[in-house]
Write a protein that binds this DNA or RNA. Sequence first.
DNA 1: GGTGAAACGCGCTATTC
DNA 2: GAATAGCGCGTTTCACC
Lengths: 161, 161
Amino acid sequence: MALEHDRLLDETGWEILELLQQDARVPFSELGRKVGLSAPAVAERVRRMEDAGIITGYRAQVNLQALGYAMTAIIRLSSPAEKCTLAGHKLAELPEVLEAHRVTGEDSWVVRVAVRSVEHLERLINQINLYGDSNTAIVLSSAVTQRVISKPKEQATTPRR
Amino acid sequence: MALEHDRLLDETGWEILELLQQDARVPFSELGRKVGLSAPAVAERVRRMEDAGIITGYRAQVNLQALGYAMTAIIRLSSPAEKCTLAGHKLAELPEVLEAHRVTGEDSWVVRVAVRSVEHLERLINQINLYGDSNTAIVLSSAVTQRVISKPKEQATTPRR
DNA sequence: GGTGAAACGCGCTATTC
DNA sequence: GAATAGCGCGTTTCACC
């Protein structure tokens, strides 16, 4: 498995991966031109990266504001231990929840949500408070929303060969 | 602008949007079949949604672990007011930063990061600490990583017609 | 703003190296 | 594991509504 990854993730593999993260709809033929491979070769590599679980999907990115979601917020939730798993299930069901991460530390979950209005946020917080104490921070702006993952720099701590 | 959105975001528009969020690579012809439109009609709608800023891009999703990033974490950063903007620029430059949100409340920034190891995390925290006090929570699991945005339910607070 | 037909270009597969 | 060639299909453009 790790061997398979190493074979796929050579210089060209990373190039393909970065290009697909920037624009998931680029034709294989164009990818091939950019990385110096034929279209079928690129298609084959991409298929193998999908099979290996390296590429997990292709998503259209949408503008939340344009879709009527006026604001996003970060909600931290501290659940008592026995409610924590249940809280996870509930969070996964709420359509406002964009991400929900179970974390170490004082909080149980860190959640990013999108809401249409302050009133909507209030109702959502009321729902979430059923599972513990929450702390909400409104997002004012975002310096980074979705980074393209590129090849990790080699480190002395992870020697090769 | 809002009028343009309303025209684009009818029942069919939302269907297309949801399908593209699930799989950005579906052919227009298949989209057309699913929503009951011809391929050129779908292509035209998608182009207009892109122009209107509703669709902001198409991204391949990758598996961070498969790419050598063993863990993710949520770092909250409290910067003194005068360093806050500078911190934002710095966060945007760090390749480990997946998202960085400026927020209200006691913290200045909430940041999600991906690192290869605990040592890597330590170095990153050292970098970030130059801009204020930080609090790091390791992500143990994620109940939701990327929700498909669907049509907001109509509310009494936003009357139509 | 949508349809249907035609031209073009892309993706898929088989074959070869 | 990649290149090349042929075929089927998707995309694009256009006239028409």
